[in-house]
Simulated assay, not measured.
Amino acid sequence: MNMKVCTHRGLLIAVLTRNEHCPPHVHVGTGDWNARFEFSFWHNGVRLWDVMPIQESPSAGLLEEIRQAIRRAENLHRARKLWWQSRQGLCLDNLLWDAAAQAVVTPKGARPGTVQIVSGRFDGVRNMTVLHLADDPLPLEIQL
């Protein structure tokens, strides 16, 4: 099932609900190509993940337009809400929070002072990610 985030130039940008996996992402494409764009629950960046098949990929300009459309606050918020609704996960569990860098890092990128992310949830009403960190009774709230 496709859950519509938005459209751009007639192209449907959607979160899929079947056989999805981390990281959080949306799909867009035609019968000739499909692209995935990754988004996050701890920052507002969006990046092109991949295009298949590469031989049929659209212009770099169109891909950038699509990325910018997804980055619009209302579209990114909707993508997060739909991902959370379908997955009930943020793809952040067991990663680490680096408070000094205000960033999520993998165990390979860990520095002293990083703390394990035990769980998290997306609060769509407040447009906020709430992370529960190991050994910290208070949640970390990240306003998006």
Rank of each mutant, 00 (worst) to 15 (best):
W33T: 07
V51R: 10
L48R: 13
V5N: 09
G29I: 08
R47S: 05
L12G: 09
I13C: 06
F37S: 05
E20R: 14
T7F: 03
H27D: 07
S57P: 03
G29Q: 10
E56C: 08
W33S: 03
H21P: 08
G31R: 03
V51M: 05
G10P: 00
T30S: 12
G29W: 12
Q55H: 07
E38P: 02
A14W: 11
P53Q: 08
H25M: 02
F41G: 03
F37V: 01
R47E: 05
A14V: 11
N34P: 01
T17C: 12
S59D: 11
N44S: 05
S57C: 10
Q55E: 14
G31F: 01
L48K: 04
F39K: 04
H25P: 10
S40V: 00
R36S: 06
F39P: 01
W49H: 11
A35W: 07
E65L: 06
G29Y: 10
A14I: 04
T30V: 01
S40Y: 12
V28N: 08
S40K: 13
N44H: 02
G45Q: 10
I13L: 03
F39L: 01
F39R: 02
S40I: 03
S57A: 15
D32S: 14
K4D: 08
G45L: 12
V5D: 07
W49F: 05
M3I: 05
A35K: 15
W33R: 06
N44D: 13
Q55N: 02
E65I: 03
G31V: 06
R18D: 15
L11F: 14
H27Y: 13
E20L: 14
L12W: 07
C22I: 01
G61D: 13
G10A: 09
Q55W: 12
R9W: 01
N44T: 13
R36N: 06
C22D: 04
N2P: 13
L63R: 11
K4I: 01
G61K: 15
C22P: 03
V26M: 06
L63K: 07
P53G: 07
N2T: 14
C22T: 00
N44M: 04
H43D: 07
E56M: 13
